[in-house]
């Protein structure tokens, strides 16, 4: 659409083109450097044994088995709490409030602020509320609940988006048929909004699995296999942090753990784009 022919490109035009291309090249080069470095150093250490065995010698040897289990448990707690809360809130915001209602506006505003809260502040809050006040201590439960607070805004926003793309005709037809709004919601709107919910879920998992600062003071450092949700468990990102900062000679295993984390995120990222492409495009429910 732009005039790209430029019959007589002046000095500024040529300078600008150079700048734009070099900016893009610089960003691409940095990205390749970062990813290449981690793949290069990490790939050789990844094996089935690395993924399943417990760490030995503070993580310098052994694997990341219990750490993966803790990470999954933290994620499970996080989603188990965040999904019902998030879906409920999204339904209320999208279906049961008008844009101008005070309650809706306040909720939305507070979620906006929540999405900007720095992760370390979530950590402080989780430590003060879940660990101390509720007495859960340093545990997987505390960590998961803290993360749930953190991913809630992302989850709500994209689920709400999902509900908003359901055509109004659905609601009007259901109302005309005399269906209760509960029935409409459960059998008509919810299935149609599932894609949005899934995208939100995937984004939320991505944010939760990448989180470190909020977990250090809530789920803790213990790298043993967790026996219950009240045990402290070390998440993968905390493991990378600990290996690189506190354990001399832990770099090679930190590389490998970082690669595992990046693989997980790439898989999640791929899932998001696949979902948006293949599922969001066909929204009409065939019930």
């Amino acid at each position: 659409m732009l005039n790209t022919l430029e019959p007589h490109p002046g000095g500024w035009e040529r300078l600008a083109t150079t700048f734009v291309w070099s900016a893009a090249a610089l960003v691409t080069a940095t990205f390749c450097w970062l990813l290449g470095d981690i793949i290069w150093h990490g790939l050789s250490h990844i094996s089935w044994a690395f993924l399943t065995t417990p760490p030995r010698n503070a993580g310098r040897e052994g694997g990341i088995g219990p750490i993966l289990v803790s990470t999954l448990l933290i994620l499970g707690v996080c989603l188990g709490v965040a999904v019902p809360l998030g879906v409920g809130t999204a339904v209320l915001l999208a279906e049961f409030t008008t844009d101008t209602s005070l309650f809706g506006r306040l909720t939305r505003r507070s979620l906006d602020v929540l999405s900007g809260v720095p992760s370390i502040v979530f950590g402080l809050f989780g430590n003060a509320f879940f660990c101390k006040t509720l007495g859960l201590g340093f545990s997987i439960l505390s960590g998961g609940l803290t993360l749930a607070c953190m991913v809630l805004p992302i989850l709500i926003r994209s689920t709400e988006e999902g509900f908003r793309t359901v055509p109004t005709g659905y609601r009007l037809s259901a109302a005309a048929l005399g269906l209760s709004r509960t029935t409409t919601l459960l059998y008509l709107l919810l299935p149609a909004a599932v894609p949005g919910l899934l995208v939100g879920l995937v984004l939320g998992v991505g944010r939760a699995i990448a989180e470190t600062a909020a977990l250090i003071f809530t789920s803790g450092y213990v790298d043993r296999m967790p026996q219950s949700l009240l045990d402290s468990g070390r998440a993968l990102s905390v493991h990378i942090f600990d290996l690189s900062m506190n354990v001399s000679g832990g770099d090679s295993h930190a590389y490998a753990s970082a690669l595992v984390l990046i693989f997980a995120l790439l898989a999640i990222n791929g899932a998001t784009s696949w979902l948006t492409k293949h599922w969001l495009s066909r929204r009409i429910v065939t019930v």
């Binding site: 339904v91 809050f125 709004r181």
Partner: peptide, 29 residues
């Protein structure tokens, strides 16, 4: 439908919890 009213209050409950997390964070800080 009475279920509708129940549902509405349920949803309001979840939204109130979600919306008050920020307040809770500020309060505890």
């Amino acid at each position: 439908w009475p279920t509708d009213r129940l549902l509405l209050w349920l949803l309001r409950g979840t939204a109130a919890i979600a919306g008050s997390i920020v307040l809770l964070i500020v309060l505890f800080l």
